[in-house]
Design a binder for these strands. Structure first.
Length: 427
DNA sequence: ACCCTCCCAATGGCCATGTG
DNA sequence: CACATGGCCATTGGGAGGGT
């Protein structure tokens, strides 16, 4: 990924991963979705669980109003489902294995819950983790999402990638061939043939865009060979203005919205309204403390290798009971209580299963008794059945039975029930 | 709710001019 | 001459607003 230049300076030759993945031309909304999903992935995630995005967040990601939001979501996810990525997994590069998959493996809109769900194919995991690079927080992803055009987005990724490497090799700049940059940005042959165009339409807008909307800013110098610009050298710095920037969706209600987002996305509390209610009722700080405790509790349970029944349930409990750092007794109590609830549920289920089996057995016994009846006995039984129909006022079934006898469907169904009732019990 | 029109910003191409 | 630069223009697509 990094090769030594003759002069000894470092060249970020390419982000092999991205090139080898043949990152296809994703549309802006598709890129936004992917980036947003990347921010949700945790390194520790074993399999890619479905990732939930609230409608509010989706608005931020895709931009625009809520009216045609689902249509745009549909369009973007359909694109992601269709587009094939081929990439060489660096861990398996030796055997030349090429993985082929699509960006996301399923996308669903969950009616009534105010959120949508996306799922990645697990094959993609190493690729996405590599891609994830340095933007790990919701805030950063949001900032990226604000970037309007996809050249800006890709340059931002490039800068962040180099910024990450700088932590390791202390590089101060990244120098790339113009041709590489064009390839990286997937600019078609013939477009921006002149550097001037490339600069005025790609580099400068990206510079402006990134400085205005994200946590970094960059600058570049043109390195010429003769009169032709051969290479671009990027330098970068932290964007100090970023802290004061208004992030989309947060501007109206301070930090509260993000708390709702945490409730919805991390703890799966839905619908959106419920999360809002919780924030309004208990307040930001209360919930923050409670959720921290809930996280610790969940981690503890998971460490013990136990399954967490309902993350949302624990969060709700934590909020409603006001878990605070010093009140670990509650936590223990809750744990015990929760265990009891689970035990009870299991016992109930077993009981139900048992009853079900018993019922089936009785029905089978009844049917065999019915089938082994002699002619006369059966006639008498059917007469009884008819009487029962009259008694219960079941005129529709009665009519059918009188017309055609025991026919598949309603009549047979009623007869089976009757048989079960009359012959199922031990005589 | 749907369609139409207008406006604006983004985009990409062309051209005149400047410069080593 | 070859290329950079900046201005200009046509096209496109999304959003807002108004009419049916």
């Amino acid at each position: 990924m990094i090769k030594k230049e003759e002069g000894g300076g470092l060249i970020a030759a390419s982000n092999d991963l991205l090139i080898e993945a043949q990152w296809p031309q994703l549309k802006i909304n598709e890129q936004r979705l992917v980036l947003y999903m990347l921010s949700l992935i945790q390194r520790g995630d074993k399999d890619f669980k479905p990732y939930r995005i609230s409608i509010r967040e989706l608005c931020n990601i895709m931009g625009g109003s809520r009216n045609d939001l689902y249509a745009r979501f549909d369009e973007a996810t359909e694109g992601l489902l269709k587009k094939v990525i081929r990439w060489i997994n660096p861990d398996e590069k030796a055997d030349g294995r090429i993985d082929k998959t699509t960006w996301c493996s399923s996308a669903s809109i969950i009616p009534g819950k105010g959120c949508v769900e996306l799922r990645f194919d697990p094959t993609l995991k190493p690729f996405l983790l590599a891609l994830k690079g340095n933007f790990t927080t919701l805030g950063e992803a949001r900032a990226v999402i604000r970037l309007r055009n996809h050249y800006s987005l890709r340059i931002y990724q490039f800068i962040k990638y180099n910024q990450g490497l700088a932590n390791v090799d202390h590089r101060k700049s990244a120098r790339v061939e113009l041709s590489w940059l064009r390839e990286y940005l997937a600019i078609p042959e013939g477009t921006y043939r002149l550097f001037g165009h490339f600069k005025s339409k790609v580099l400068l807008p990206a510079k402006k865009d990134i400085a205005a909307k994200t946590d970094v800013q960059f600058d570049f110098i043109q390195i010429k060979k003769g009169r032709k610009v051969q290479e671009i050298e990027f330098t970068w710095s932290k964007n100090k203005r970023y802290q004061q920037m208004e992030l989309p969706g947060i501007s109206d209600r301070g930090g509260q919205t993000s708390m709702e987002d945490i409730l919805i996305m991390e703890f799966g509390i839905s619908p959106e309204k419920k999360a809002q209610e919780l924030v309004e009722e208990y307040g930001h700080d209360h919930i923050k403390a409670a959720l921290q405790m809930a996280r610790e509790y969940i981690n503890k349970v998971r460490k013990r290798g136990q399954k967490v029944e309902s993350v949302g349930g624990i969060a709700r409990k934590a909020i409603e009971e006001g878990w605070k750092p010093q009140e670990s007794i509650i936590e223990v109590e809750y744990e015990v209580q929760q265990k009891a609830v689970i035990q009870e549920r299991i016992a109930k289920k077993q009981q139900e299963d048992g009853q079900e089996a018993e019922k089936r057995q009785k029905q089978e016994l009844a049917m065999s008794r019915y089938e082994s009846m002699g002619e006369g006995e059966r006639e008498a039984f059917l007469a009884e059945f008819r009487e029962n129909l009259v008694a219960t006022g079941n005129t529709i079934v009665l009519k059918r039975y009188d017309e055609a006898g025991v026919t598949p469907g309603m009549v047979e169904g009623m007869l089976a029930v009757f048989i079960g009732e009359r012959l199922g019990e031990d005589v």
